[in-house]
């Protein structure tokens, strides 16, 4: 095992920052969802790196990552259904135009 744990952690921090940039800076709702998916991937890399280097004898780390994967799938399905529903009524999924709930 020649790859240091820190490399994985720094990679996942970079991936998380890139995903968060997508969430904060994009105007299209689907592009925001792409950013969220990247963030969830970064979290999973982190979980699995800790599992491999600190508790490889315990399957809990992998179980946690599988649950994250499941929730990511559900989130993508519901999020995209919402966007399609919004697109149908507003003809746009630009989040700058979605201000109906603004006080």
């Amino acid at each position: 095992m020649t790859i240091p744990l820190t490399w994985y952690l720094i990679l996942s921090a970079a991936l998380f920052a890139i995903g968060l940039f997508g969430v904060l800076a994009r105007r299209n709702a689907i592009a925001i969802l792409i950013g969220v998916e990247l963030m969830l991937n970064a979290v999973n890399v982190n979980i699995l790196a800790f599992w491999r280097y600190i508790r490889p004898d315990d399957p809990s780390g992998q179980v946690f990552a599988i649950i994250v994967l499941t929730v990511a799938a559900a989130e993508a399905a519901v999020g995209l259904a919402l966007f399609i529903s919004i697109y149908r009524t507003r003809r746009s999924i630009n989040v700058d135009h979605l201000d109906a709930l603004k006080g």
Binding site: E37, N41, L48, R52, Q62, L69, A76
Partner: peptide, 22 residues
């Protein structure tokens, strides 16, 4: 990271399902 199950699940779920959905 020797997490083979997660690697395959990643390809099936993320590439096969989520990316297609997007």
């Amino acid at each position: 990271l020797e997490a083979e199950f997660l690697a395959i699940a990643q390809i099936i779920i993320y590439i096969g399902a989520i990316a297609t959905l997007i």
